[in-house]
Amino acid sequence: MSKGARLAVVLVFVAVGMGMIVFGVMTYVRENPPTVDFTTGHRPGAPVHLTIQTVGTIGFGPHPSWVSYLVKAPDGKWVHTTLWKVPAHTTIDVTVLEYDGATPLRNQFYGEVQGVGNTYTVNGRHMSLIKATSTAAGVAHTFSVPHLGINIPLYAVPSSESAHECSSAPCHPASAHQTITFSFNSGGVHEDRWQCFIPCGAGWLDGNGGPMQTIGYMGGFLEVTA
């Protein structure tokens, strides 16, 4: 084999190797949980019913011990994702099945219900403010969309019922839980991040690492489309 041919072979191998590395990195970087679509088949003017649950430990996947959100897809199956697509200018009726115990809020400010009028209920009872300074009872998580002005404290399962807590997702309503409901209007076409404001990433710096900084667990995007 001539010197030129050998050089060409080496260059081809280097190019293929580089390409594989770039492909691998980009695939990893662009990897996202699935998006649950509530727009398909949606009748204009009709509300969207969004049912989600919060669990103390997801129980499966690469991080089984992490706290997480799940969402019920239109087909009734629970999906482990925090990426939701909803129609614009539509009332979103949300039901949260909250299965986790209390974590003190870093800032009690997030114990106040904001941005959903008087639609917020816990087990059917209207509330507007939850004291969240103890682990015995209070707030487990929040569902907050800062740019829509929405903050929903999720009332926790009291420590007295810890024996009946769900240990892995998806949790069944037979486990101890709180049912929280509220409604908001999705507004115009946009995309907003949402997150939990409880430092519930136990064991991470300031409680805000791990599941708090991983899409699919305690934060995600609300995609509002036409």
């Binding site: 974590t103 003190p104 870093r106 800032n107 300074t133 682990t135 409880i198 430092p199 519930c200 990433g201 136990a202 064991g203 991470w204 710096l205 300031d206 409680g207 805000n208």
Partner: peptide, 9 residues
């Protein structure tokens, strides 16, 4: 150090 540990502020 870790709000999840129960510390308030």
């Amino acid at each position: 150090a870790n709000g999840a540990g129960g510390g308030y502020y």
